[in-house]
Structures are given as structure tokens and as C-alpha cells.
Simulated assay, not measured.
Amino acid sequence: MPSDLPTGEALQAVLFDMDGTLVDTEPLWWQATASVARTLGFELGPADTPHVLGHTVEDTAAHLLSARPPSRPAESTTDLIRLLTESFARRVERSARVMPGAPDLLHQLSAARLPTALVSASPRSIVDLVLPRLGHRFDHVVAAEDTARGKPYPDPYLEAARRLGADPGRCVAVEDSPTGITAATAAGCRVLAVTPEDGLPSLRQIRER
């Protein structure tokens, strides 16, 4: 099958973002963050989007602390992380939806014996809630706790490639957010950006990337 990878450099692995790519949880994360923001005395708006979607819970907690009204007493970062995680987990348990086409694509990758990794900005506790819904055994899972720096830094994708024994340049990363795309690109991965309108790529599109 045609590919723009240089001759002899076959695709080694496919690395998937989770929230917004395989499961429709980004609206749930926004809702969870908005509910915590209200306890700090403000409403989230469009200007907050780049600081919330695609980021770790630690980064989002730091943003909420910096954005709260000066008149409000500061919560501890630890308390905010706990509140955000608990609020998100309740919503994921109740209504997380697998993206259309995700189970079929993951099944095709298994049948083709292409290694896969899940590379998520969510904490391990959230990833563990989602994994059973996907019905796929990833070769490795990199969650927020697994690297010192999360997306948009390249660390999570570099760690996934390292665990797989793969060259990042011979991996395709499937991502939906600017934060995740920046991280995968910085790691040297070939990136397929997905949108709700276009859905997930086909196996052929992944191979050709």
C-alpha cells in the first residue's frame, strides 16, 4: 500500500489520543472544569479553551488558580486537582461515548498486527474508566502521571514510542486538539488530525500517512 514514509521505513506503530479522538469526553471535561471554576467565582469562556482542552488536570488546575477573581481565596492546587478529577470521573462514568468508527478501526489495527499505544493527558484513573469501552488491548498506555511534562510538550509521545521500541518518525499519531497535535509534531511523529465532522481515519489513510 502506498506510503510517504521513506523506502524501508515501514510504519511501526499507531499512537492514539483519547479524549476527543476515541471517546467524546472533551465536552465532559469542559463541563467538569466549568463547574469547578464556578466554585472559584467565575465562568469559563472562549479565552479559556486553549488552557483547558487537551491539557492535564494539573495544568488546568493551575490555570483556574491564575484566572480566579483576586477577591476569592485560593484553593490549594491539590484540592483543585481532586475536584476536577472527581467531577470529570462522574461524567465519564455516566455518559462517555465512544466515537463512531473507533471500535472498527482498532479491530483492523489488531488484525493487521500494528502495535498501538494510548497517549492521554487524562490521569490514569480516568483512562481506566474509558479503556473497557474501547474493547481494544493497547500495547502500552501513557497517562498523565507517566511523564514529567504533558502535552503540548513531546514527552508523552516520546515515552510511548520508547515503550514500543519504535522510532517516533515511523509512528502515526491520531489527535484532535491543537495541544495534542503540537506534542506529537514536536516528538517527530507523523500526525493525522481528526475532527468530529470527518471522524477517524481509515487504516489505509494511516498507512499512507
Rank of each mutant, 00 (worst) to 15 (best):
G45Q: 09
L44C: 05
T56R: 11
G41K: 07
E58L: 13
S35E: 14
T60S: 14
P73A: 07
T56A: 06
D59E: 15
L44V: 03
S71C: 08
T49I: 13
G41I: 04
T33Q: 00
H63T: 07
T56F: 01
P46I: 10
R38P: 02
V52K: 02
P50G: 05
Q31I: 01
H63K: 07
H51E: 14
L28R: 01
S76V: 06
G54P: 01
A62K: 13
Q31T: 07
E43T: 09
A67L: 06
W30F: 08
L40F: 03
V36L: 06
T39I: 02
T33F: 01
A61S: 11
H51K: 08
F42Y: 14
D48M: 09
E43M: 09
F42I: 10
L53S: 06
T77I: 12
E43D: 15
D59H: 14
T56P: 00
V52D: 00
Q31W: 00
T49M: 13
S71W: 09
H55Q: 13
P69Y: 11
E58W: 08
A34G: 12
F42G: 03
S35Y: 03
V57R: 10
H63G: 09
L65W: 01
P27T: 05
L64D: 03
P50D: 08
A62D: 14
T56H: 04
R68W: 02
S71K: 08
A47F: 09
G54C: 04
H55V: 06
A67I: 03
G45L: 02
A74K: 13
V57G: 05
P73T: 11
H63I: 05
P27M: 08
A32S: 10
R72G: 01
G41R: 11
P27F: 03
S66R: 15
E43W: 04
A47M: 09
D59S: 15
P70Y: 01
T60Q: 04
L53A: 09
G41C: 08
H55M: 11
L44D: 01
R68N: 07
T39C: 10
T60P: 04
P70D: 15
V57C: 12
E75H: 13
R38T: 10
A74S: 14
H55P: 00
G45I: 02
S76Q: 05
A34R: 04
A47I: 12
G41D: 12
A67E: 10
F42P: 01
V36G: 04
A61Q: 01
T33R: 00
A62N: 07
A74L: 14
H63D: 09
L65C: 05
L64M: 06
P70T: 09
R38Y: 04
T33H: 00
P46M: 10
P27S: 07
L65M: 15
L28C: 04
W29H: 14
P50Q: 06
A47E: 14
L64V: 10
P27C: 06
T56Q: 05
P46Y: 05
